[in-house]
Amino acid sequence: MGKVVVVTSGKGGVGKTTSAAALGAALAQRKEKTVVVDFDVGLRNLDLVMGAERRVVYDLVNVIQGEAKLAQALIRDKRLETLYLLPASQTRDKDNLTAEGVERVIGALKKTFDWVICDSPAGIERGATLAMRHADVAVVVTNPEVSSVRDSDRIIGLIDAKTAKAERGERMDRHLLLTRYNPNRAERGDMLSVEDVLEILSIPLLGIVPESMDVLRASNIGMPVTLADSQSAPAQAYLQAARRLAGEDVPISIPGEKRSLLGKLFGWRAA
């Protein structure tokens, strides 16, 4: 049985889709069979970020409505044979996502994939709650900025209360992925520090992704950043995060950072 991971944040524009694609690719690069599922019905973007936008035939809603088989809707990545995409529908209404339909699709994906990465839409409405509903693990994407931190706190509360795991009385593992982190601004005190965010949200840290042109460039050319340039700082951050997600004990660092700053990082709890 594969593991289901929801990538969520509450707030829009913090890097959920970029992170879902990068983590999915990073796990697939470990030769583990991975599918990334876009839950943002009506505003799909994962296909663009993963460079599959010309190849979408069927989508998640087609599968839920029984108009296509799951195998027909899955798009295999051209560069990585262990990486798949299940796109969202661009034309359908999000009411077509039914709770039973989502449960069925996730259940089927778990049987054939090692990892099922659910890319949640922004907000706390239906799409977001369905994306997290059947997850085993949550990755909460947060920018070091007050509104993002507060929305993440709200989402963590929902993860603790409104998921299938919570209803069974279990606790879902939640990890913090800090994105758009700018070490210079943090140094000057113009940005919430890693410690601040960790103290407020009190969940373990999965990784710190520095703000970088490489992220923009990767999405321009339609490649997950870990594939576009695996040596770049954000790619290293996502590759590290994927290893932690897979249970490896990797010390937290900010890739691309000066060595001297590393001293500060001791004492953070890795995920």
């Binding site: 507060r150 929305d151 706190d153 709200r154 963590i156 509360g157 603790d160 209360a161 407020i200 009190s202």
Partner: peptide, 23 residues
């Protein structure tokens, strides 16, 4: 206690061994 959550206990005291978030 996370943003958007309410803890209501009219019967007596509430002790929280963690933080109460903004909101």
């Amino acid at each position: 206690v996370r943003s958007g959550q309410s803890v209501i206990f009219p019967e007596g005291d509430i002790t929280i061994i963690a933080s109460v978030a903004s909101g």
